[in-house]
Design a protein around this nucleic acid. Structure first.
Lengths: 219, 219
DNA sequence: ACCTGAACACCGTTCAAGT
DNA sequence: ACCTGAACACCGTTCAAGT
């Protein structure tokens, strides 16, 4: 009816008659903001991301952003959620392409470290505690859980095929996560400056991890 | 001569004649600021620490702080430096009190995780990347290196006594640090909510670590 | 629906001035 | 030596108003 047209008439009018001081973002503004936030975090770190500069870069007023995100934390949560989704994809790909065997498990560990080192600021948003655990955003929890589940599934498969000890796979996955997370942090903090040092550590730690999972319950 | 007295006369005058609106901090202001910053970080996290509130809590004007720290980053570096010193003390104590043997090595790992979990905000300042690696504050680097050296020394001793494989002790120490760091991060992010889950993981991971170090070079 | 502009309360930091 | 008070340039966030 009429009301439907009224709803969109401003869009029509503005696109047809405005002297184009700024193009409107129709529905893709959210994604444009996320993309630009990604770029800013990548180049200047989380502390370099301010909503005002983000808006200016996208070509939008200060408050336009609040149509799509409740506040800055909500935007960071969205960034972290995307990061977890991307990480899970990388992990699953390495595991499946490697043939779901102990060697593929090592490839999965290497993929984890690589993701963190190639996206350090992203990784910090995901694990740096900027997002207080009270902010239990369901999508974030679900996406983070999905990435962790990829590890649990891989370990359960190794167990089924006789490659891994039969402890609780969740405990084994937590241990595996701790190892790769620790290695990744070493790499991110750039405390390993010597070329090859991170690769050496990653290889060693992941091999230690694999051998430890293979070790029988009582040594 | 006269100039010496002139230098301190204001202190004399102010302590004797002022109607005590605010007590002066003679030389201990720096420590008072660090102590209060510690308390604020502990209760509200790093993002809860603002220089203005810090000054107000200590009872000092906004700019007084700049007599002791170049800027906010310098204050955080000082906090991190203290943290590393404290951590090293805890590690060395656990190692020596335990008798410098494999069991003591486990105690050292547990002490590490305990330090992180009991001082989560401190720990984040130390490792959260708030301090960009470019800011190579010599004291911070030295104190952080000291804590790491405690690990290297312990592993070298284990090697000498036939308890650990003979790889490069620095590599072994990096691996050990990665493991306990990863476990600590799990605990800090409170992703392990179930009671006892963190203890279970810490015990498992540290035992994996110890067994891995004991394993001979070629399994 | 989507955006603007001004305003508010808060930052870190500086600097001339005070005791 | 140590501190104050005002100022500057920046934040995140809100809200009435515009198209």
């Amino acid at each position: 009816m009429l009301s439907v047209d009224v709803v969109n008439i401003w869009t029509y009018v503005s696109t047809m008659t405005r002297s184009e001081p700024r193009p409107y973002h129709h529905g893709n503004l959210r994604q444009a903001l996320l993309n630009e936030a990604d770029r800013m975090i990548r180049s200047s770190g989380v502390e370099g991301l301010t909503l005002r500069r983000l808006g200016a870069r996208v070509g939008v007023s200060r408050s336009a952003l609040y149509r799509h995100f409740a506040d800055k934390r909500a935007l960071l949560i969205a960034v972290a959620t995307d990061g977890f989704r991307s990480l899970r994809e990388k992990l699953v790909e390495a595991w499946e392409r490697g043939g779901r065997n102990p060697e593929a498990f090592r490839a999965m560990g290497a993929a984890y470290v690589e993701f963190a080192v190639r996206n350090p600021s992203h990784y910090r948003v995901m694990f740096g505690g900027f997002l207080d655990p009270e902010a239990r955003n369901p999508e974030l929890v679900s996406e983070g859980g999905g990435a962790f589940q990829a590890l649990v599934d891989a370990i359960a498969t190794l167990q089924r095929d006789g490659y891994a000890r039969l402890d609780n796979p969740v405990l084994l996955a937590r241990h595996a996560w701790a190892v790769v997370h620790g290695v990744a942090m070493f790499g991110i903090d750039a405390q390993l400056r010597e070329p090859g040092a991170l690769e050496e550590l990653a290889e060693f730690s992941i091999e230690q991890l694999r051998a430890g999972l293979a070790r029988t319950r009582k040594e």
